[in-house]
Simulated scan of single mutants.
Amino acid sequence: MAPIAVSKPNAFWVQKWLKDHGIDTLLADAVNKAVEGRSRDPAASLSFYFQKRSKRNGEIKSMKARTIYDPNMRPVLEITTKCVFNGGERLGSTAVGPVQVPPPPAPEEGEEPPEDTPEAQEERLNAAYEAAIELINGELGKALVGQHAKKVLEVDDKISLNTVLHENAPKLMISLAAAEAGATLSEEPLHLFISRFNKEMLDTAAGNVGGGGAVKGGDEEE
């Protein structure tokens, strides 16, 4: 049997790829780190270094929700976010909070609104928990897979897009769960992570204005 011909990579493409990805610098940094640490297992040190530098670190791998109970035996929603980390996965956040009781349905025209009893409120609350869990474990959770937890604006856009038809979805809690995962991977407290993100947004807006862009406000005249 004749040997299978294997085409060699184009030399120009190889050089371009090496330059585009900064491979020379990346390799030099990795070797320097291994030497500085007097590594007894250079292969493991290099592997760890490259995994840590992976751009996929921080991508949301899964977001799951379930109902648990607080010390007073009241239901609360638990949202667990896991992210890609060093070739595996890492727990990004476990957010816990209550779901608000949805308002009663509007009565038919000409009819008196029914009495909003505790039983009716409990029934709506249970339905809200079930709907939130179904949404997060289904449509929304799938949409967030692959989104980077540190890119708050992009994640929030996905959350808004996939909850637009779910009026009572706990959007703020879902957003905070994703932001907490980003903070964990950034190794900083949630409030600092969010404040830094807000500052970046303001700096970007200021740059747009300075560069001739426009920031629309609510008082803008037609």
Rank of each mutant, 00 (worst) to 15 (best):
M1T: 14
M1W: 10
M1V: 11
P3R: 10
P3G: 05
I4E: 06
V6L: 12
A11F: 06
F12Q: 10
W13I: 06
V14M: 10
V14L: 14
V14N: 06
Q15L: 14
Q15C: 08
Q15T: 10
L18D: 04
G22M: 11
I23H: 13
L27W: 03
A28L: 11
A28R: 13
D29A: 15
A30T: 09
V31E: 08
N32A: 15
E36K: 14
E36M: 14
E36L: 13
G37H: 12
R40S: 15
P42R: 08
P42N: 07
A44V: 03
S45H: 08
S45D: 15
L46C: 10
S47F: 10
S47N: 11
F48A: 15
Y49R: 06
Y49K: 08
F50Q: 10
Q51W: 09
Q51T: 06
K52E: 14
K52D: 12
K52V: 06
R53M: 15
S54E: 08
K55A: 15
G58R: 00
E59P: 02
K61P: 00
T67H: 07
T67A: 07
I68P: 04
Y69M: 03
D70T: 08
M73V: 05
R74Y: 06
P75M: 00
L77I: 00
I79W: 00
I79N: 00
N86Y: 00
G88V: 09
R90T: 04
L91G: 04
S93N: 08
S93V: 04
G97N: 01
P98M: 02
Q100L: 02
Q100Y: 00
V101I: 15
V101D: 05
P102H: 03
P102L: 02
P105Y: 02
E109V: 12
E112R: 11
E112N: 13
P113I: 04
P113A: 09
E115K: 14
E115M: 13
A120P: 01
E122T: 11
L125I: 07
L125F: 10
L125A: 07
A127P: 02
E130V: 09
A131R: 09
A132R: 03
N137G: 01
G138Y: 01
G141Q: 02
K142T: 09
K142N: 06
A143P: 02
A143V: 03
Q147K: 15
K150M: 05
K151N: 12
V152T: 14
E154F: 09
V155S: 01
V155I: 01
D156F: 10
D156P: 02
K158C: 11
K158G: 05
I159P: 04
S160L: 04
N162E: 04
T163E: 08
L165T: 13
E167D: 02
N168Q: 13
A169Y: 02
P170Y: 09
I174L: 06
A178R: 06
A179S: 15
A179W: 04
A179N: 12
E180I: 05
A181G: 08
L185V: 07
E187V: 13
E187T: 12
H191Q: 08
H191E: 12
L192R: 10
S195N: 04
R196T: 08
F197L: 00
F197R: 03
K199V: 08
L202R: 12
A206H: 08
A206N: 12
N208R: 13
V209R: 14
G211H: 03
G212H: 03
G213A: 07
A214T: 12
V215N: 05
K216G: 07
K216P: 04
K216M: 13
G217N: 05
